[in-house]
């Protein structure tokens, strides 16, 4: 998506040389918008190191004394570590199976006769049209019937099914661009479908798989609706659900809630800083489904 490619890199300022004034006036909206993004986040970061009294006296300033009391309470009283562990487990398990099952379907689609492949592709990607909220009641009933409510396994199963359509959409699009002759030749040499899939198609599709992995990772890690519906026990909650319930527990104890927000967001932000190009690519691949 964002290539270092000056050949096709076109904007209007390629056309006429621009003067200094214009260069400065371009920075004004950019700096203003950057502040609009970063200031609210910074305020929350500062607030998480204040006591409630400090916050009411000085809601916006840099904390006079940086108190880590909220963070201590967070990890001592609030099982924050368990929420992290739950989020990690649910997210990684889901993403692994989404990629495995999704890539297998995509492989089958590109190897089948066009008509059958297209029908299968249409059937699977139809799911992208259905908002999660539409199926939430029947899914809840289904998990209850299968005795999978309030279990990570139930949450994971539904998450996998929800994200398979978009995964198949992205991966099939990419796999279609692989040279067909190469796959055919391997088959003629006696390779099985499984070998072609695992030794040729998967390695060649790594960029698309990485995009899909990141997209599914961000969606699952941040998902609120499914945990909210299915998880009741405190010891099984994922981070977004735990945060939501802080709100009821701490009401206007903002510093405590914000310590939760910061602790829950920091890992993602750090990963983002290192892999931002991949994040931007992956999230965009997910939204280009139109």
């Amino acid at each position: 998506m964002i290539r270092k490619n000056t050949e096709t890199d076109v904007t209007m300022e390629n056309i006429k040389p621009i003067n200094i004034n214009e260069r400065i006036s371009r920075q004004v909206p950019l700096v203003a918008y950057t502040l609009l993004i970063l200031l609210p986040l910074t305020l929350v970061f500062f607030a998480s190191f204040k006591t409630l009294k400090q916050l009411y006296n000085d809601p916006l300033g840099i904390p006079e004394k940086w108190s880590i009391l909220n963070y201590i309470r967070l990890f001592a009283n609030e099982n924050m570590l368990i929420y992290f562990k739950n989020s990690f487990f649910v997210t990684f398990t889901s993403v692994f199976f989404i990629l495995l099952l999704g890539s297998m379907i995509s492989y089958a689609i590109i190897r089948m006769p066009n008509v059958v492949g297209n029908i299968l592709f249409g059937f699977v990607t139809l799911g992208m049209m259905v908002p999660t909220q539409v199926k939430m009641i029947p899914t809840y009933v289904l998990l209850s019937d299968l005795n999978l409510l309030n279990k990570h396994s139930g949450l994971i199963l539904v998450t996998i099914a929800t994200l398979i359509p978009i995964c198949v959409f992205i991966l099939t699009g990419f796999m279609k661009t692989l040279p067909k002759g190469l796959l055919e030749a391997a088959m003629i040499d006696g390779a099985s479908h499984w070998q072609v899939y695992s030794k040729i198609v998967i390695p060649l599709s790594l960029p698309a798989i990485a995009s899909t992995a990141i997209f599914s990772f961000v969606i699952t890690w941040n998902d609120l609706l499914h945990p909210l519906l299915f998880i009741k026990s405190s010891s099984l909650k994922t981070l977004p659900l735990a945060l939501l319930q802080f709100q009821g527990e701490y009401l206007t104890d903002y510093p405590m809630i914000f310590a939760g927000v910061v602790a829950a967001s920091i890992p993602m932000i750090i990963i983002y800083i290192f892999f931002q190009r991949w994040f931007i690519q992956g999230m965009t691949a997910g939204s280009m489904k139109g």
Binding site: L30, N222, I280
Partner: peptide, 23 residues
Amino acid sequence: YRAVLFLPTIISSVSVAFVWIFV
């Protein structure tokens, strides 16, 4: 700049909600 503008996309809606409740 792009990375900064993109940043809120990766933060969970619950966290975004609390940030703006405060603002």
